[in-house]
Amino acid sequence: MVNPREAAAAVVDPEIRVITIDELGILRSVETDPATGRVVVTITPTYTGCPAMDVIRADVRRALAAAGHPDAEVRTVYSPAWSTDWISDSGRAKLSAAGIAPPAPVARPNVVPLTLAVRCPRCGSPETEQVSRFGSTACKALWRCRSCSEPFDHLKAL
């Protein structure tokens, strides 16, 4: 039997298929209920209306069934609310390699904000501009590079 944590962590996000739900930070915990022996996976949505949640739940159950845990339970929690700060370094690198500019750290209250340029994931240029604050999925905005002229997605800091 595959370790349930590893099985759940390997599930990829259905809308951004280069990154796993673990790297995206939406996999909160994988535990085994000591009384029943059932695996309980806890996930949290990026956005409240994220339409990928049903698919993610089904994919997690399927992955755990394949790993020898056919009765795994998937729970959804909303607190603490997901933040892009939970995206791992390997997740950020994969987003960038897939042409999606990763988010800057979320601004903290009482901290002087440092606005970093969004770098073009294709040519690395900081000469970029926002085209639209909303993009192809709830978590992305549409940007354009002024150096290489390519449009690209940017995962919004949340």
Binding site: P45, Y47, T48, G49, P51, S132, F134, G135, A138, L142
Partner: peptide, 20 residues
Amino acid sequence: MEEDIALANIALDQLGAARL
């Protein structure tokens, strides 16, 4: 086009809150 996507995204956020 950009505004179409923006309004649909905002609608989706509202729907998400409504469901909870």
